[in-house]
Every structure is written in structure tokens, then in C-alpha cells.
């Protein structure tokens, strides 16, 4: 009886499987999802990097006091500290400043250790002093004016302006992000375009069958569903393949980035949410392929017959 059970033999009216279109779309979607995943990882890293910069570095500035040069080290040190006190007093009057503190000897020593090694005697060295100013939230001092005033108060003081440097970096990162985002848009556009044209071509190819279906009373959605079903599957499989190659690539790039000195890139950790987003890409590609195919069929059939 099972041999005679026609339900088992049931096939879809449109022969959409096992052809070169399927292979083409699968490869196309794999590449698209690969590019998408890697670029998305980039965008998300830049985002977390920008977030980290904004919260830690943007909220502070550093003033440097150059050491007084003097044959008598002890006298030089004393004079330098006088300058430092004057500058601190001034900085504390700034409305944007929340907290002003000079780095002490051991902190300075920690900073200098990579260059000078252990066991140096700070007191005998003409080293610059650093004053750390934590700014109030969203405070934006006029850095140019501030630098001018500092010079008036002490010719030894200079503004180590994180902000000016960071501004450039943030702009660069923002530009990179825009570029990456437009890549994402481009990848989506090209892939939907490919699905659109292959679907359209395929509809033309099976025009006879579609005409029969129509005359039998099939609505456009009946045909559209058959394409949508296939492309949902292709989108999912292609997405998984793309992801399979993307994940090791992301790790590789992250590994390379981590080698860059300065710890800038180390802020670029991908959160669990970001990973979740990347790993769910096959679902998105499946859904996108499905809807593209569905609406392409509906639109094309309305024009075709």
C-alpha cells in the first residue's frame, strides 16, 4: 500500500530544486553572510570601542609640568612642585573640573618603569609631573583657551589634550563605521538583487507550468510560497556556510588586532549580545531570502500575466 500511496510521491509543481540556480544562490548567500558577519563584527567592535573611549578617556584631561632644570636636584624639584601647586589651584577653579589630582612619585614611577626600569630614584631625576583632571559629565571645556591660560600661569605647564587626539580617532572610527555600514547595505542589496533576478528568470522558465496553475485557479501566493519555501531553505543553508567561515575569520582578525600596542583595540571586545547577533545571521538570511523571493514572484506575476 505504501508503494501505492501517492502522497509519498507528491512533488511540488514547480521543479525548483536540484538546479544550478540553487547552487548559485547558495554560494552567493554564503559569501554575503560571510562578508556581512565579518563586517558586522567590525561595526560592533568599533561601537564598543567608541563607548569605552567616551566613558573613560573623554571624561578626563591631563596637564603636564615640565621639570625645572637646576644643578641642585632638590631645589629643582621644589620649584617644579611649586609650579604644580599653582596649576592645581587654577584647575580647581574650572567649572568643568570635578576632581583634580597630581600623580605622586610612585604612580609616576609606574608609568616610567617601561623606559627606566626598576630601582630608580625619582627624587634625583628631572621628570615631568602629571596632573589628572576628571571632568564633569558632558563637560566640554574650551581646550584652546585653557592651554593659553595654563601658559600664563606657568610656562612649564602644557595641556596633554586627550580630546584633540581622541577627536581624530573618534572621527576616524566613525568614518570606518559608516563605511562598514554601507558595506552591509551593499551586501544586502546585491544579494536581494541576485535573488530578484534569478527568481524572475526562473519564473520565465516555468511560465508554462505557472500558466496551468493559474488556469486551475491558483492565486499568485500559491506560486510565491513555493519559491519562498525554497529560498528560505537556501538562505538558511547559505547563511550557515557563510558563518562557518566567518567565525574563525573574526577570531583571526581579533587576534591580529590584539597585537597592536596601546590597548586601544583591546576595548574592542565583542559582547555576548554581539555574538548572538552574528550567530543568528542564518535566520536573518533565511528570512530575507524568503521575503525577497515571495515579493519578487508576486510582483513579476502581476506584470507577466
Amino acid at each position: 500500500m505504501t508503494r501505492n500511496d501517492p502522497l509519498i510521491a507528491r512533488k511540488q509543481e514547480l521543479p525548483l530544486k536540484d538546479n544550478s540556480t540553487c547552487l548559485f544562490l547558495k554560494v552567493m548567500i554564503s559569501i554575503a553572510v560571510f562578508l556581512f558577519a565579518v563586517t558586522l563584527a567590525g561595526v560592533l567592535s568599533i561601537n564598543s570601542m567608541l563607548g569605552a573611549w567616551n566613558s573613560s578617556i573623554l571624561g578626563s584631561l591631563t596637564v603636564q609640568i615640565m621639570p625645572v632644570n637646576h644643578a641642585d636636584a632638590e631645589k629643582a624639584r621644589k620649584e617644579t612642585l611649586e609650579h604644580q601647586d599653582k596649576v592645581i589651584a587654577f584647575l580647581k577653579t574650572l567649572p568643568e573640573a570635578e576632581h583634580v589630582v597630581a600623580l605622586n612619585d610612585s604612580q609616576l614611577q609606574d608609568l616610567l618603569r617601561p623606559w627606566l626600569g626598576d630601582g630608580i630614584e625619582m627624587r634625583n631625576l628631572p621628570t615631568p609631573r602629571l596632573i589628572d583632571v576628571r571632568l564633569k559629565k558632558d563637560a566640554k571645556p574650551d581646550y584652546a583657551k585653557l592651554a593659553e591660560k595654563l601658559a600664563e600661569i606657568s610656562p612649564l605647564a602644557s595641556l596633554d589634550n586627550h580630546k584633540l587626539w581622541l577627536d581624530k580617532l573618534v572621527k576616524f572610527a566613525d568614518g570606518l563605521k559608516m563605511l562598514a555600514m554601507s558595506t552591509l547595505v551593499l551586501v544586502i542589496a546585491i544579494t536581494s538583487g541576485a535573488i530578484f533576478y534569478t527568481t524572475q528568470t526562473n519564473l520565465g522558465l516555468h511560465r508554462d507550468i505557472i500558466e496551468i496553475l493559474h488556469i486551475m485557479g491558483a492565486k499568485d501566493t500559491y506560486v510565491a510560497q513555493q519559491y519562498a519555501k525554497r529560498d528560505a531553505w537556501l538562505g538558511f543553508v547559505g547563511g550557515c556556510i557563510g558563518l562557518f567561515f566567518a567565525v574563525p575569520t573574526i577570531f583571526m582578525i581579533a587576534g591580529l588586532a590584539a597585537q597592536i600596542e596601546g590597548g586601544i583595540i583591546s576595548e574592542a571586545r565583542l559582547s555576548w549580545f554581539s555574538w548572538g547577533l552574528i550567530l543568528s545571521l542564518p535566520l536573518f538570511s533565511s528570512f530575507a531570502a524568503m521575503t525577497t523571493a515571495y515579493y519578487t514572484v508576486k510582483r513579476t506575476l502581476e506584470k507577466m500575466m
Binding site: A9, R10, K11, E13, P15, I209
Partner: peptide, 8 residues
Amino acid sequence: IEHLSAFD
């Protein structure tokens, strides 16, 4: 539809 069975 030639690739389908008589039943289908």
C-alpha cells in the same frame, strides 16, 4: 505537468 505523476 510532465514531471509530475498522473495522481499529482
